[in-house]
Design a protein around this nucleic acid. Sequence first.
DNA 1: ACCAGAATATGTGCATGCAATATGACTGGA
DNA 2: TCCAGTCATATTGCATGCACATATTCTGGT
Lengths: 223, 223
Amino acid sequence: MKRVEPEILTRTERLADEIAAAVLSGEFAPGRRLDEAMLAERFGVSRTPVREALRRLASTGLIDLKPRRGATVADATSAQLETLFGAMAEIEAACARLAAMSMTPIERRRLQNLHESMAALARRGDRDEYAAANVVFHACVYSGAHNGILAEFAGGLRRRLAPFRRAQFRTEGRLARSHAEHAVVVAAILACDAVAAHAAMFDHMSLVEDALGRLGAASRASA
Amino acid sequence: MKRVEPEILTRTERLADEIAAAVLSGEFAPGRRLDEAMLAERFGVSRTPVREALRRLASTGLIDLKPRRGATVADATSAQLETLFGAMAEIEAACARLAAMSMTPIERRRLQNLHESMAALARRGDRDEYAAANVVFHACVYSGAHNGILAEFAGGLRRRLAPFRRAQFRTEGRLARSHAEHAVVVAAILACDAVAAHAAMFDHMSLVEDALGRLGAASRASA
DNA sequence: ACCAGAATATGTGCATGCAATATGACTGGA
DNA sequence: TCCAGTCATATTGCATGCACATATTCTGGT
């Protein structure tokens, strides 16, 4: 029996997680300045691990870090958002393609089960539960691609976009449509149809972007 | 007239570049331990910027960094190499697809000119010049995709793979074949044929991987 | 009143020092 | 002889302090 890693986290790693959580929860809003001394005091450590945690978060794009100017929570312009969603769509589609080719029977079964269980959530309109399951769904596709590099990149993009897609499922009927799009993806993957899986996932992600774009336009119009 | 950035590099940034250069040049071989104190003395700085540079390089995958165990130059197992090449192929193909759709006429013209100038290099078998031009060629495709996120990721993967593909063009006839594959990619992009561009680039990258695989097998057999 | 320049203040970049942990040598027992 | 346990050393993780760059405020001039 192989021992798993002891999982001893350094302060830096825990800090990175905590700061990321604060950003993703919205407590640290996009554009907000992240002062090293402030963070150090808040989390009860010195500035050194704070600095290292900030560097790490900057490498994932969650925060902006300019030399001698400090860190701010990344706020994306609409152009950058479009770039992010575009990249996301490409990567997710690539993962779906690979997943269709290389998922094991067990993985395919798990994906199918998960998808079917999401039908109930969509039907009864449980947005929070559906959103949580949705993350798992996409993570299934990532891991099914059997390419850790792509999976990590996809996960990073998803986290980075998280602050801007929280309201994604608010649009009326989005849940049902999302589930219908998933169905096409799942069918293609189960059929080992790489081309169809790519197209279906790309379609799904593009529609997500559209939905968010309309939502953003609506909120701007109402403001 | 907008002033360009002052371009003041911090010690950490310069260090990251210098260490990366040492790794890419082969001076720091894969698997080698990178001692903080050693690097600090060698580059005449304290350990703090060394630590931060190492973190940055770790985030790009160029080095491995384990808590309390220090840094080593990343040595990829063949399985990891396969993953890297797989991801690379997917990303490059995605960039080619986007480039076919969104390159400007000027960008298309530049790509075509570059490709044509590479014909001479391939014909006279100038491996070094061809390799350099090859990097520019792929960079052209990245930038033509008009997606900074994907371009950055692709560039990172390329750097990460650099230590293992240095001998890529040593195989007899690889230059000519590479140029022929490029021709298919260029034709598809110039024709705005997204699907063909994707397929052609994917093909090209897969063949690169094959060539490298055979080379690796040969060198192992001769050892 | 507004703008330019200087002085102040804040905050980052880096150096150094200490404590904690991992690695390797060493000793004792089976 | 081999293995387990202990000890010594080396190296990382973190705290603290200082210098310099950047941001802000204040002052004087137009």
